[in-house]
Design a protein around this nucleic acid. Structure first.
Length: 335
DNA sequence: AACGAAATCAACCGCGTAGCC
DNA sequence: GGGCTACGCGGTTGATTTCGT
């Protein structure tokens, strides 16, 4: 229990703090401070930047709006598709979903889901089938991939290419069949598409970096296959599941934050303020940060062929790095 | 043009958790 | 081990914008 006098003190200081919408001046202060000093303790940032805001408010403003790597503007059909699929896998774990969409925030995705996608899926659900017993959020979420995606993307259990490796029958991932082909209907192009992954490469990549501790919970990342096709890769309960699909995402332009910092702070502040309250203000891909870490980790250079590039969403890369050394190998189980 | 309804989205709130003392 | 603080997350609210009549 907190002491009453302490709480009273806190309330007094809190009452001086500003709330509500951020002014351009406040934004500028925060941007300047962040770009000069970098991230630290948020309450200190709020104080040192001369903002009459609580640290929490500053953090939120920076993460959801001011960060230079944010991609603004409407969600692309590919992003929508990805969100839907990830939500069906992860539920309302917005931060994990956001981690798979570079430049998008959890708040943005959450809003988009609640305001647009949920309704659309619900509409599709009611118009396409009456088999669903109810339409609660949870059920909606779990049933979306199967029955409500018409118009967006029809998939079912058979559409999921499940790749599992059995530790009891295979001591090495190299013993399994490596190339996997599948044919799938793509509603965007109205064409059947061939998808192939070199699962040796995928599995070896995972073999190398995913310790059992990280396999106990669901992790989702993105796989880029041949011809730039994308898929969603999930690991869960010691299984690796490639929920593949040609997402046909456009290639992401890669640019590091360091490069971004080469632009002057003034330029950044200016460009931001010029577009204040304009949703398209960051609608360019220059600011997208891609994790090259994952690429390096997977060592695709060594494997050469097959999946050339494996982009990860929110793998706990640092944690993984630390754990790798203690887990020299990892086996997968057949489902 | 004016008004109300619906949609959108920024920001807040409360809770859980990790880290520190 | 307990208290405190800071952080991160998901749910919710409310202001603003857009749309339809």
């Amino acid at each position: 229990m907190r002491k009453p006098d302490m709480m009273a003190k806190e309330n007094i200081s809190k009452s001086k703090l500003r709330k509500g919408l951020w002014s351009p001046e406040e934004d500028e202060k925060l941007i300047r401070y962040m770009l000069t000093n970098g991230q630290g303790c948020w309450s200190d940032i709020a104080r040192n930047a001369g903002l009459l805001r609580c640290g929490k408010s500053c953090r939120l403003r920076w993460i959801n709006y001011l960060r230079p790597d944010l991609k603004r503007g409407a969600f692309s059909p590919q992003e929508e598709d990805l969100i839907i699929r990830l939500h069906s896998l992860l539920g309302n774990r917005w931060s994990q979903i956001a981690a798979c969409l570079p430049g998008r925030t959890d708040n943005e995705i959450k809003n988009f889901w609640n305001s647009t996608l949920k309704k659309r899926l619900k509409m599709n659900n009611t118009s396409s089938t009456t088999t669903s017993p109810n339409n609660s959020d949870e059920l909606l979420s779990s049933s979306e991939p199967n029955d409500v995606l018409g118009g967006i993307m029809p998939i079912n259990e058979h559409d999921l290419m499940t790749m599992c490796m059995d530790s009891s029958t295979s001591t090495s991932s190299s013993s399994m069949q490596s190339m996997v082909f599948t044919e799938q209907f793509d509603p965007f192009s109205n064409m059947l598409i061939d998808i192939h992954y070199d699962m040796n490469v995928v599995s070896q990549g995972f073999h190398d970096i995913i310790p059992p501790s990280c396999m106990s919970t669901t992790q989702v990342g993105m796989v880029e296959g041949h011809n730039g096709n994308y898929g969603i890769l999930e690991t869960s309960n010691n299984k690796m599941v490639l929920l593949e699909r040609d997402l046909s995402l456009p290639p992401l332009e890669s640019r590091s934050i360091d490069e971004d910092n080469s632009a002057s702070i003034d330029d950044h502040v200016k460009s931001h303020n010029n577009n204040h309250f304009n949703n398209s203000c960051f609608n360019n891909t220059d600011h997208i940060i891609q994790s090259s870490k994952a690429e390096e980790l997977f060592g695709f250079g060594n494997h050469g062929q097959g999946v050339e590039n494996l982009k990860m969403g929110e793998w706990d890369l640092e944690g993984l790095m630390q754990d790798i050394s203690s887990y020299p190998f990892l086996d997968f189980q057949v489902e």
